[in-house]
Simulated assay, not measured.
Amino acid sequence: MTTILHIDSSARPHRSDQQQHGSHSRRLSARFIEHWRAQRPDDEIVYRDVGASPPHPVTGDWVHAAFTKPEQREDWMHNALAESDELVDELLRADIIVAGIPMYNFGMPAQMKGWLDNIVRVGRTFGFDRSRDGVPYWPMVTGNKSVVALSSRGDYGYDPEGRIAHLNFVEGALFTPLEYIGITDQYGTAIEYDEFADDRTHQSIDRAEKEVANIVNRLIVKHTTTDAA
């Protein structure tokens, strides 16, 4: 059985296919789950809405606790890391992470950055040893995990080789830290032209939804083969 961690981070609470001013990224992530369930209804879906319930930001106490050896932590340190532990456990259980991430001011929502800051964690998802030869860091997340970034943008031309690709700090800001901890199989698509509200918007929605279906099909083949191995 495949486990999917489905994350939404939009501040908008509804999907754009269900409400006029709903979220395009929520629409795409929901489409992914719908396509997946249609083919593999028994797989586990774990849902986390960081847009509605943001993780607590990393604090000095959090850092102090994270860099203290587990056997030496005091009670307050365990409390400081409790939410992070829950988020890391969800990540480690998942085979696929599907993240709806709208573009806000060229980057991801602060809520999603808060999630990343909580799961990129020394001793849990990456290792660190200053006495280690070469690079003192190494990834600790094992398994054949995949990540899918489903975004939305008001303007257009943010894809690689696009006219303003250099202004896109969404997908890279997700893929880079996840690759750092060991998740290197990466996919994504996005809806553009949202602020134009014309035929280009509708065409972009149609293209993105078709690409979501294509990604689902590719990952079903990949993870069915993995499950059978």
Rank of each mutant, 00 (worst) to 15 (best):
M1H: 11
I7M: 06
H14W: 01
R15A: 07
D17T: 09
H21S: 10
S25R: 00
S25C: 02
H35W: 07
Q39P: 00
R40D: 09
P41C: 09
I45T: 12
Y47M: 06
V58K: 08
D61A: 13
V63G: 03
A66S: 14
R73Y: 02
D75E: 15
L81E: 15
S84C: 09
D85R: 11
E86L: 09
L87R: 12
L91C: 09
R93T: 14
N105V: 08
F106M: 14
M108T: 12
D117T: 09
I119A: 08
G123H: 05
G123I: 09
R130Q: 14
S131N: 15
G134F: 06
W138N: 11
T142W: 04
K145W: 02
V147K: 04
G157E: 11
P160G: 04
P160Y: 03
R163S: 14
I164W: 08
G172P: 01
L174N: 07
T176M: 06
P177Y: 02
E179K: 02
G188W: 04
G188Q: 09
T189L: 03
T189I: 00
E192S: 02
A197T: 09
D199A: 10
D199T: 11
D206K: 08
A208I: 12
K210S: 14
A213R: 11
I215T: 13
R218G: 11
L219V: 10
